[in-house]
Simulated scan of single mutants.
Amino acid sequence: MIRVLIVDDSALMRRHLNNLLSKERGFETATARNGIEALDLLERQDFDVVTLDVNMPEMDGLTCLSRIMANKPTPVVMVSSLTEEGAEATFEALALGAVDFVKKPSGTISLTIDRIEESLIAKIKGAAKARLKRATNLRHRLVEQRQRAREAPPKTTPPARGVAAVGMVLIGVSTGGPTTLERILPLLPANLPWPVVVSQHMPGNFTGVFARRLNTICHLEVVEVDSQMPVVAGRIYIARGDGDVVFSQRGGRLLAMPMPAGADYFWHPSVERMVESALSQLPAEQLIGVLLTGMGNDGAEAMTKLKQRGGQTIAQDEDTSVVFGMPAELIARKGASVVLADEDVAEQVSIWLRVHGAFKQGGRHAG
């Protein structure tokens, strides 16, 4: 039985969320109207997961979240609006220790609540299994990382930037991903000779905000794939949410483009579809696959194929995964070349590219 505390200032939203979870076997629920009530309930009772609205009177969701993490750490799934402001607040919540988020229904709640049912239930089940202590530790390291980024000298254009891609680093991630990516991507060097493409399960309204957020802390330029664009060195590409990213070639140049969500894929942006498309355009030995924290098995089959064809793959280890589902599936299929802690991923990518001779190659092509 998963005990869930629903925190929302809207009586209608509380009722609908309560009804949605109550009809699903394996859940027991309680409700609170605001952050103050939530903290009082958490002091007196134990819950496996909290769903927390961002905007509430008396005590907003971010303040409530920070106190939950300080006083009684409990897995939290944020319920967020799809506005840019809502996206910014959600990323702050994830940095504070929230495990995941679900988009708040738009329009008439009674008519739209069913659209989030499957996602909400899956995310609550995933949050109940989350390694919360690790997520909280990541938050503290992220604060330190941002401080270092503010103190660092301005970005300079490295020799490799703009060079046509001869290979790619493909990263797939879901639950716990934003904070994990904010830990890994800033460790990649400015002269990384292969571009990086990321499929993070996320709504379309969030990925642009996320790309801009990452761009402030990474040595490499970070962009959202919101239109067809060349894939070049010196750049990190974030697949646009609610759809998928695929690749093609034109005039000898590799292109990335957003595509409508494929019906054959459950999660979006789909890691599986991204890797399959990359394999159709480049030899496996010119690809590095990285499968990070997340529920389910998205990307495990395609990355196993990548390894079998001669590519290299990394699975995040259990200790540093917020949810071990996706990397565990890759390991179970014997599709992981190595299993690493999150903080070691960037270094391993750089080591492999040095073995490839890609750093020297990138510099030479850049002239």
Rank of each mutant, 00 (worst) to 15 (best):
F101M: 08
F101K: 11
F101Q: 06
F101E: 04
V102K: 00
V102M: 02
V102Q: 04
V102R: 01
V102W: 11
V102N: 02
K103Q: 14
K103L: 15
K103I: 15
K103A: 15
K104G: 00
K104H: 07
K104L: 04
K104I: 04
K104D: 00
P105S: 04
P105D: 12
P105W: 02
S106M: 10
S106P: 10
S106Q: 13
G107N: 02
G107Y: 03
G107A: 02
G107E: 00
G107Q: 04
T108K: 12
T108E: 15
T108W: 07
T108D: 14
T108S: 13
I109A: 09
I109C: 02
I109T: 06
I109V: 10
I109R: 01
S110D: 13
S110Y: 03
S110R: 12
S110C: 07
L111Q: 13
L111D: 14
L111S: 12
L111M: 11
T112V: 04
T112S: 10
T112E: 15
T112G: 06
I113P: 06
I113Q: 02
I113E: 00
I113R: 09
D114M: 08
D114Y: 09
D114K: 11
R115Q: 15
R115Y: 12
R115P: 03
R115W: 05
R115T: 14
R115S: 15
I116E: 05
I116N: 04
I116W: 00
I116C: 03
I116R: 05
I116F: 02
E118R: 00
E118F: 05
E118Q: 02
E118V: 03
E118T: 05
E118H: 00
E118G: 00
S119V: 15
S119F: 07
S119K: 12
S119M: 14
L120Y: 13
L120D: 01
I121A: 01
I121P: 12
I121G: 05
A122P: 00
A122I: 11
A122D: 15
K123P: 03
K123I: 03
K123H: 11
K123C: 06
K123T: 05
I124E: 11
I124H: 08
I124G: 10
I124Y: 03
K125W: 07
K125P: 01
K125L: 06
K125Q: 09
K125I: 08
K125G: 06
G126Q: 08
G126H: 11
G126M: 10
A127I: 03
A127G: 01
A127L: 06
A128L: 07
A128I: 09
A128H: 05
K129T: 15
A130S: 13
R131Q: 14
R131V: 14
R131A: 14
R131T: 14
R131F: 11
R131C: 11
L132E: 09
L132T: 13
